[in-house]
Amino acid sequence: MSTETTTSVWGGGNRPMKASYGKLMMWFFLLTDALTFSGFLVAYGFARHKYEEIWPLAENVFTHFPGIEGHQPLLYVALMTFILIMSSVTMVLAVHYGHEMNKKKVTLWMGLTLLGGIIFLGSQAWEWMHFINGTAEGAMLLADGSVAHVLQAGELINGQTYAHEILKLGENYFITEGAKVSELLNGAEPIYGANMVVNEYGAPQFANFFFFITGFHGFHVFLGVVINLIIFVNILLGTYEKRGHYEMVEKVGLYWHFVDLVWVFVFTFFYLI
């Protein structure tokens, strides 16, 4: 083991780029993780371009808000984004008071960060539940594998009243002729919500990417909550007071901010665009 007096760069005697070993290792990890998420989001872009006609718009899929009736696009995900940004602020405040060796304030802000993470995970579970259960009307999975929305006769759509009845996703016209409708619905099955195989809102790839990317992000949040909890217990035990510094809080802080950073991109590419 090298001692404090080692000055050789290769012996680890100085701090490369003036950052500590632990922080550099965290940055190594975050860099690889950032490229992993980039790969996922770019792959999402690929699938979206490929299946452009049947790709559902997130604003037509995620329209629920607890306690409010009706069509509420973007509102719920805006709340989730707010929660995550807020927990990022509480984390950076915990790091700040860590530098001041203020145990009481580090405990407070770290506790709030933990709470924010748990609320975010709960919100995500709620969103997944709605997506998996789908709408009351559902859709029809046609024999050829495409998805069609069956509409009530006389319903007003884009300023036009249709006699009936069926919109095959990816096509720009309604099929209203009775014989054609029954031919299409021959062998069709009703589907509700989304899973890895079917998706009532459109391309099943949308559901696959949604579950995979938000799931992988959610897994990061979950791990973050677990790690934050361990650090929180250590703060309470006074481990870092004894050690003389709160660098551990700083390191998990980097991870936590990264989770927020990834959400910023998921929010844009999944929900806004």
Binding site: M17, K18, V89, V92, L254, H257, L261
Partner: peptide, 15 residues
């Protein structure tokens, strides 16, 4: 987020 929250703004230029 990166510059202010992750404090990259106050790191060395090389980092």
């Amino acid at each position: 987020i990166v510059v202010d929250f992750m404090h990259v703004g106050s790191e060395e230029k090389s980092l």
